[in-house]
Measured scan of single mutants.
Amino acid sequence: RRRVRAILPYTKVPDTDEISFLKGDMFIVHNELEDGWMWVTNLRTDEQGLIVEDLVEEVGR
């Protein structure tokens, strides 16, 4: 599965499916959606939700 790492921290918008995360958090990407959004699991918190791909970088497989 594709893995990405947060290059900046992010605080979710209330009442959305987004998740908050810290710089350096690692994610497993489950689905890539329209407009640059991805459905992921945060490996640090085990939380699932939406993040925007502009805030992450690819991690070598």
Rank of each mutant, 00 (worst) to 15 (best):
D46E: 15
V52A: 15
L50K: 15
S20K: 02
D46Q: 09
H30G: 05
E53H: 13
N42F: 03
L22Q: 15
E47L: 05
K12D: 03
T45S: 10
E57G: 04
E34Y: 08
Y10F: 04
V13Q: 14
T45L: 02
R2H: 08
T11S: 11
L22H: 13
P9S: 12
E32H: 12
R61F: 14
T41S: 08
G36M: 01
V29Q: 00
L55V: 08
D35T: 10
W37L: 13
P9G: 11
V40L: 01
V4I: 08
T41I: 04
W37F: 13
F21D: 02
V40W: 01
E32A: 11
I28Y: 10
D25G: 03
M38L: 13
M26V: 13
D15L: 07
L55P: 01
E53A: 13
L50M: 14
N31I: 07
P14Q: 11
R44C: 05
R5N: 03
E34H: 11
Q48S: 13
S20P: 04
N42T: 01
E53W: 08
T11P: 04
D54H: 07
L50A: 14
V29W: 00
L8G: 13
D17Q: 13
E34A: 14
P9N: 10
F21W: 01
E58W: 10
T45N: 13
W37P: 03
D17T: 13
T45F: 03
V13S: 13
L22V: 12
R5F: 05
P14M: 12
L33W: 09
I51F: 02
G60D: 11
R61N: 14
I51R: 03
N42H: 05
I51P: 01
W37C: 13
V59R: 06
Y10V: 03
Q48L: 07
T45R: 01
N42P: 01
K23C: 08
K12S: 10
I7F: 07
P14Y: 06
R61W: 15
W37M: 14
L33Q: 14
E34L: 08
R3S: 09
A6P: 00
P14I: 09
I19P: 00
M26E: 15
V40D: 02
T16C: 05
D54I: 06
V13P: 06
E47C: 08
H30E: 14
I7N: 06
N31F: 08
E58V: 08
V52K: 14
P14D: 13
E53T: 15
L8H: 12
G24E: 06
D17K: 15
R5H: 05
E18D: 03
V13Y: 09
L8V: 12
V59Y: 09
R2M: 11
G49T: 03
P9R: 06
L50S: 11
G36K: 06
H30L: 10
V56K: 03
K23W: 05
V13N: 15
G49I: 01
D54V: 07
N42D: 04
T11C: 13
R1G: 10
R5D: 02
L55K: 14
E34P: 15
E57D: 07
V4F: 10
R1S: 10
D15T: 07
D35S: 10
P14E: 11
E34G: 12
F27W: 00
V56E: 00
I7T: 10
E47V: 06
G24W: 04
H30F: 05
D15V: 04
E34F: 07
E18A: 04
I19T: 02
G49F: 03
D17C: 10
W37E: 08
M38N: 04
D54G: 13
A6H: 01
R44F: 04
V40R: 02
I28L: 12
E47P: 00
D17I: 07
R2C: 06
D25T: 03
K23T: 11
G24S: 06
V4K: 04
R1L: 11
L43C: 14
N42Y: 00
I28D: 14
V56D: 01
I7W: 05
L8K: 09
L43W: 03
R44Q: 06
M26Y: 13
F27P: 03
I28Q: 12
P14G: 10
E57L: 06
E34N: 13
K12A: 13
G49E: 03
R3T: 09
F27H: 03
D35A: 13
D25L: 02
G36V: 01
N42G: 03
G49C: 03
G60C: 10
R1F: 15
T41C: 05
L33C: 11
I7Y: 06
G24I: 01
R5Y: 06
V59M: 13
A6R: 01
E58L: 06
G24L: 01
L50R: 15
F27Y: 02
K12Y: 02
L8I: 09
K23I: 09
D35Q: 14
N31T: 12
L33Y: 11
V56A: 05
R3W: 06
D46M: 13
R61K: 15
D46G: 15
A6G: 04
G24A: 05
A6I: 01
T41N: 04
D46A: 15
T11F: 08
F27R: 01
V4Y: 08
D54Y: 08
S20W: 05
L8Y: 10
V52H: 14
V52N: 14
M38H: 02
N42K: 04
T16K: 04
Y10Q: 05
D17S: 12
R1C: 11
G60T: 14
P9A: 13
D17E: 13
H30M: 09
G36T: 02
T45Q: 00
V56R: 02
E57Y: 06
E47T: 07
F27S: 03
L50V: 12
T45H: 03
V52T: 14
P9W: 03
D35E: 12
R61D: 15
E57F: 04
Y10R: 07
R44G: 04
V56T: 13
R61Q: 15
L33K: 15
D35P: 09
H30N: 09
L50E: 05
A6S: 07
E34R: 15
V13I: 13
R2P: 08
D46H: 14
R5E: 09
E34C: 09
D35M: 09
F27A: 01
G36W: 02
R1T: 14
D17M: 11
M26F: 12
E32W: 10
R3P: 05
A6F: 01
L50I: 12
F27T: 01
Q48G: 06
P9K: 07
E18Y: 05
W39R: 12
D17L: 11
F21G: 01
L22N: 13
P14S: 10
L22K: 11
E53M: 14
P14L: 08
